[in-house]
């Protein structure tokens, strides 16, 4: 697997581990939520730890941890199970998390814009992924109708900003 991040396909430097011994080895590790919850005092000392969240996880469990975690992995069991879209927005907008949020699972290029808008900034993809297809989808729409975790201005504000600035100038 590779990682699609900031418009480029890069090598994934994080390792997914499932036990404390491996988690404490050097390098960035992604650990299951349960392991984090059981060992968080030990793991907090480590600089590069990411937590893998099931898509039905209670986000409050990490309420005190968001500023100590470097990455969060959101789980998509299938491309049509959209629970993690809500999780992503809440983690960004409610908990103010500013580390990497990555999507793991069989999501496709046509969902990239939605992922980005909800605050996901990295996607695990096969090595032979057609990056251009993903980027084309991310750029496809020239306007948005609703606010989300990105900084795009929804149409209902943009229309009047234009009008207001036209009057001002």
């Amino acid at each position: 697997m590779a990682l699609l991040k900031n418009g480029r396909l890069i090598q994934d430097r994080w390792t997914t581990v499932d036990n404390l011994t491996d988690a404490l080895k050097p390098g960035g590790v992604l650990v299951p939520l349960e392991l984090w919850l059981a060992e968080r005092d030990t793991l907090r000392g480590k600089s590069a730890v990411g937590v893998i969240l099931p898509n039905d996880a209670d986000l409050d469990l990490l309420a005190d941890d968001y500023d100590r975690i470097a990455a969060i992995v959101l789980t998509f069991p299938s491309m049509v199970d959209g629970r993690a879209f809500s999780q992503a927005r809440l983690i960004r907008e409610r908990f103010g998390f500013d580390g990497e949020i990555r999507a793991r699972g069989p999501v496709i290029a046509d969902q990239y814009l939605y992922l980005l808008r909800c605050g996901v900034d990295a996607v695990e993809v096969p090595d032979d992924t057609n990056v251009e297809s993903w980027l084309r989808n991310a750029r496809r729409f020239s306007a948005v109708y609703q606010p989300a975790a990105d900084d795009r201005i929804p149409a209902y504000r943009r229309r009047h900003l234009v009008a207001a600035s036209a009057i001002a100038s």
């Binding site: 491309m79 959209g82 969902q111 729409f141 948005v144 109708y145 609703q146 989300a148």
Partner: peptide, 13 residues
């Protein structure tokens, strides 16, 4: 209609 169109969070309910 506008709010619900291409809603990034609610397209895979």
């Amino acid at each position: 209609r506008q709010w619900s169109t291409f809603h990034p969070e609610f397209t895979f309910l």
